[in-house]
């Protein structure tokens, strides 16, 4: 049986392997580990899981937010990520209700 965490990891792996995907948000910011002495004034919110998965009658509903690399047209990349994930789920016979992909940054 596939757990949600496994599925999230799987989606993460597939997504990050796509050329042009620079980041999958909101992962824990890398800078956080570098800066031990950063201000404590702002409450650090726990990093939400990078990919949200909801079970629905029509299959899973996936939502992820990504950062795109500058050298890839962003809208095309968005479609490419979608198509890649749909293909991946089809191969694994995983019914999909919807996939929401948001580009939040071009870096």
């Amino acid at each position: 049986m596939t757990t949600t965490t496994d599925l999230q990891q799987e989606i993460l792996n597939v997504t990050t392997a796509i050329p042009g995907v620079a980041t999958v948000y909101p992962a824990a910011p890398a800078a956080q580990t570098i800066l031990e002495n950063v201000v404590s004034v702002i409450t650090q919110q726990p990093a939400p899981l990078p990919i949200s998965i909801t079970e629905t009658d029509g299959g899973i509903a996936v939502a992820l937010t990504i950062g795109a690399a500058t050298n890839t047209p962003a809208a095309d990349l968005c479609r490419l990520v979608y198509d890649t994930l749909v293909d991946h789920f089809r191969q694994n016979s995983q019914p999909v209700a919807s996939i929401r992909i948001l580009i939040a940054n071009i870096e």
Binding site: R79, Y82, I101
Partner: peptide, 9 residues
């Protein structure tokens, strides 16, 4: 594909 909800901020 209607199952696609794609966007840029």
């Amino acid at each position: 594909d209607p199952a696609a909800e794609l966007a840029i901020t």
